[in-house]
């Protein structure tokens, strides 16, 4: 199984031109860097299955990761950077512009595992309710309002069911309602598959951002100076925001174009090569061709000698043909010719 996979990778590597390989290597480097940060974040996580009320008065983010509630704001630029990276460099499509980052805020408030569970259940119930609500022919504002109520309802139900406080802010609730609404629209427009993919992307991105936000790297930057993180990220986003090249996903998307280009280029090369390589064949084909009539035939040096000149007899014009009647040139019957009447139809 693995050998097949490796062989496929090798084939893909052989097919790839240097122009494709370079962005691929950059992509791998970015992925490795992100993976490292996520790993740091994972290592920094003490309790995975902790609910917010387990820590008493202490905020969840501080108890689990040592991230003070006042510092929740400070990690936002890092989240923004990752969202920009995902959108304009990788080309991941997610709901909304900074929605993944806002969902991450809710994760940080609830917990690394509990957050995704709570929010995804709220979103799932909202998604189930959305088609029913669409049938009521409500206005868009009304639709959103009902969705917010539904999300809060689910969160409240979860609180009573779990017997715990979830400590979700008002902000993520609105974000969740917006996600549900976009999901409904995308489902209507592009079908369930695309909608599910986008929802998965959003959630995945949110989880990655969560672990990068709580990694030692981010916490160190925040602890060192409150100015360091926003300043660094502003510069980094500024540089990244000017990126005008192809997104990583677009290299795959437009593969047919460059594959076609390369195919044409290769075929052109091969044609020239066969001519240059098989020179003898080329000459043989030329000798086989009928000699030009009525001209001196010069195949070799000897033919240039006046005595050795060969002339192919000139083809005379067909003498009979020039006197033949040019019937068919006009539709009218020829002069000095009779109508031929053999049957009633001819009349």
């Amino acid at each position: 199984m693995f050998s097949e996979l490796i062989a496929r990778f090798q084939r893909a590597r052989e097919r790839a031109t240097p122009q494709v390989r370079r962005p691929f290597y950059i992509g791998v480097a970015v992925a490795l860097g992100l993976g490292l940060l996520v790993l740091l974040g994972l290592l920094n996580t003490e309790y995975f299955f902790a609910a917010p009320d387990a820590f008493g008065d202490m905020a969840t983010s501080q108890a689990i990761w040592g991230l003070k509630p006042s510092n929740l704001m400070m990690v936002l630029p890092l989240g923004a950077f990752l969202v920009v990276l995902a959108r304009s460099f990788v080309g991941v499509s997610a709901f909304g512009l900074f929605t993944p980052m806002l969902i991450t805020l809710a994760f940080l408030q609830v917990g690394p595992i509990m957050g995704p569970i709570v929010l995804s259940s709220a979103i799932l119930v909202g998604m189930l309710a959305a088609p029913l609500l669409l049938k009521l022919r409500m206005t868009r504002v009304g639709f959103l309002g009902v969705l917010i109520s539904v999300v809060v309802l689910v969160l409240a139900a979860l609180q009573t069911f779990l017997g715990r406080e979830l400590q979700v802010d008002a902000f993520p609730v609105v974000v969740v309602a917006l996600v549900v609404e976009r999901w409904g629209r995308l489902w209507e427009k592009d079908g369930p598959w695309v909608a599910a993919k986008t929802a998965f992307n959003t959630f995945f991105l949110a989880i990655v951002i969560q672990f990068v936000m709580v990694s030692h790297f981010a916490l160190l930057l925040i602890e060192a100076s409150p100015l360091l993180m926003p300043a660094c990220m502003a510069v980094a986003i500024g540089i990244l925001g000017r990126y005008r090249g192809l997104r990583l996903s677009e290299i795959g998307r437009f593969a047919p174009i460059w594959l076609e280009r390369r195919r044409i280029a290769r075929e052109g090369e091969e044609k020239i090569l066969t001519r240059a390589d098989t020179d003898e064949e080329f000459i043989a084909a030329w000798e086989k061709a009928p000699p030009l009539e009525g001209m001196w035939v010069i195949n070799s040096r000897e033919d240039l000698d006046p005595k050795g000149r060969r002339q192919v007899p000139q083809a005379l014009p067909n003498s009979e043909a020039q006197f033949a009647p040019r019937s068919g040139a006009s539709k009218r019957p020829m002069k000095h010719n009779a109508w031929i009447i053999r049957s009633p139809e001819d009349v």
């Binding site: 031109t17 122009q19 494709v20 304009s88 080309g91 990126y243 005008r244 090249g245 192809l246 997104r247 677009e250 290299i251 437009f254 174009i257 460059w258 280009r261 390369r262």
Partner: peptide, 15 residues
Amino acid sequence: TNPIDEILGINLRNS
């Protein structure tokens, strides 16, 4: 002449 450079990506389109 490089086919990758012939393609207009969404970033460049937006700019």
